[in-house]
Nucleic acid binder design. Sequence first.
RNA 1: GGUGGGGUAACCAAGUGGCUAAAGGAUGCGGACUGUAAAUCCGCCGGGCUGCGCCCUUCGGGGGUUCGAAUCCCUCCCCCACCA
Length: 399
Amino acid sequence: MSPQEQINLLKERTEVFHGEAELLERLQSGKRLRVKLGVDPTRPDLTFGHMVVLNKLRQFQDLGHQAILIIGDFTTRIGDPSGRSVARPILSEEEIAHNAATYLDQAYKILDPDKTEVRRNSEWFGEMSFLDALSLSRQMTVARMLERDDFAKRYASKTPISLIEFLYPLLQGHDSVRLESDVELGGSDQIFNMLVGRNLQKDANLPEQAVIAMPLLVGLDGERKMSKSFDNYIAFNHSAKDMFGRIMSIPDATMWVYYRYLLEMSDADIAKRQELHPMEAKKQLAATMVARFYSLETAAHEREQFEKVFSKNEVRDDMPEFTWDKLLPEAQEATLVDLLAATALPAFSSKKEIRRLIEQGAIRMNGEKITEPSMRLVRPLAETVIQAGKRTFLKLTDA
RNA sequence: GGUGGGGUAACCAAGUGGCUAAAGGAUGCGGACUGUAAAUCCGCCGGGCUGCGCCCUUCGGGGGUUCGAAUCCCUCCCCCACCA
């Protein structure tokens, strides 16, 4: 692919693309690009929000370029200033190693491991002296810092800004100097920090990195950005069932955003999809994503199960099984409430909650609605399928 | 260092002596309906119990006043803002 074609492709779906001209030159010189992405070792769970950036990184890899993941193990020790309400716990070596490994496992669902280099920024920060740190901070001015939009706003509204927050972008930028990255990728909340990297590289007489910011993906509610703290996310590690179901729960309008950023579908293809029935389009989205993280078979299975439960009002084929022996080994008879409570399933968080479910007509045994909260069961028990609402199913056997 | 504001259900936020397990909102859950775990409507939403009634725990921690406190007093802890 020609350099210009590469640029055109790489530009797709980005929110910000700085340094296009220099990047083109470098491509024309035949250079294999070094593309950097920072990783936060305090949060090992990747969500579909991360996928937007990872997809872009993968695109670079597919074009033959080198991806570099930076584990911010040093920066973690300082604590990310944006989460300043609560001091972040300092992670131990082991925790960082563990989180990094977990992170990589997930990231490799998208990235090509063979074209990925993993680095820790303690490599260089660990040996820097205070003097080094001071000379690093000389490369930034307060005025330049205050250009940053969120700092400017906070300063104007007299919300405190700690000095360390000023330092943070410098650290991130210094990573770029050390790695001599040609491109830095990130979410659009990272734009400023990434631009600082450009400045520092320039001061170090290095070619400046291009800065590519991807939009922040909207969450399941279709309004706020996807984030764990809003609980509106889908994680790489969600089960196939949950992944499928969660996608089905997004508002119709949001699914097109997902088609665009998660499946990287072209506008033309999206337009075609929009002719489908919205439910069908959403099912296809859900199935494609599940296939990506699990398999085609799993995706087909989940789609089938979903239709069974929600369209036909039937019961799932696969459900957890419990035996009376394990639940209540001593008892020869028990109330339904006690048995369900013993399963410890999330839907049965307390006995009160289970009674509530029964009172609301949510519990079915072998398809029959139970209305009596004090219902008792006696051993031996024939195999019984219990359903609580639309999402919780279990099979109960005697032993 | 000074001044002022604040800590309420594991989220936001009312409530300043009893009728407060504590308004309202958000989230969540259930039901109905449907084109989906979309939308809409209705209901539930601290826990326990031989349940429509009783018991236990809860309003930053501790102590006190009172027949009775989230609400008053004392004390301690923590957060925030403004001024230095």
